[in-house]
Write a protein that binds this DNA or RNA. Structure first.
Lengths: 154, 154
DNA sequence: GTTTATTGTTAGCCATGCGAACAAATATCC
DNA sequence: GGATATTTGTTCGCATGGCTAACAATAAAC
């Protein structure tokens, strides 16, 4: 006698995902959705920010005076996409568009004082979120995962 | 004497990503963008389909007669999102909404003959895309990556 | 038989992204 | 030096993909 029980008529019909479990993209997507949800719950409730905007802020903070076009290249999006992002961050007082001293076409993105403070606060939340999320993995596994993702992406 | 050369004025100023490289979400996103691009180039050009729609088709094919609400649960999206997806797939002749025999509210999603043929063709393209994409990894690494992603997502 | 829940649908909204077109400013090239 | 290209930020329109809220029809629960 096996451990499998007789299926009852009331059983939810077992769901099949077909080929999907064999595809990396399926698991990549699920992991990302899980991460987004976790971010929204742990960081988003306390700071009104998304992973995307946080990434932009990080790069702006790490490269003072960055022109919008450079940011676009770094984030691998179009220049026109950056306009909206900069509008948002500027409207919230986190960054400023400072006219470049050497090129009158370009705007240098700079964190404001408010922006610096907010970013420091958000970084704490993000690091806590990261620690919480990866608590399921050992440090070695975490590193392995990161490395494999990098190799996949390049 | 080290191997570092004297930075010239014409050098592109080295870009920093701040904290981002320490965050799993950053690498997850990059990997996904890379995968989407690869999918678009290898599958999308030959079949006019996206990873999302392909996933829906897979689940419909693997669960004949699935009601829209069940599909929504399986894909973890809202019922209303499925309406648009089903509209698209139906407009393209790949699936049909068959009225349920036992519940006059629900529509059972079924592949059409065309849909079956198309899906078979697309599956070939997707598997080739997958093989190509993961050629950078050994089979063991591929499996490790999948397992770690699953553990992260649950 | 009345109330509650589920199903599919519509409508409107938001976020993220792209592409095309544009004017201003800068580079390049004879 | 002056014509021609290129770069920069911007706007506008569009597409995708997702959400919520409301609704009518139907089914289930009490």
């Amino acid at each position: 006698m096996t451990a499998t029980r007789k299926p009852a008529a009331s059983d939810p019909p077992a769901m099949s995902y077909g080929l999907l479990p064999d595809l990396l993209g399926f698991h990549l997507r699920r992991a990302q959705v899980a991460l987004f949800r976790h971010f929204a719950h742990s960081v988003g409730t306390a700071a009104d920010i998304t992973p995307g905007l946080f990434g932009m802020l990080q790069v702006i903070a790490a490269n003072p005076g960055l022109a919008q076009s450079r940011l676009a290249e770094a984030m691998e999006v179009e220049r026109s996409t950056i306009v909206k992002v900069a509008d948002q961050l500027e409207a919230r007082g986190l960054i400023e568009r400072v006219p470049s001293a050497v090129d009158r076409r370009s705007h240098c993105l700079e964190l404001t004082e408010t922006g610096r403070g907010e970013l420091a606060r958000i970084e704490g939340l993000v690091l806590a979120h990261e620690a919480d999320l990866t608590a399921k993995l050992t440090p070695a596994e975490r590193q392995t995962l990161t490395r494999l993702l990098i190799r996949l992406a390049e």
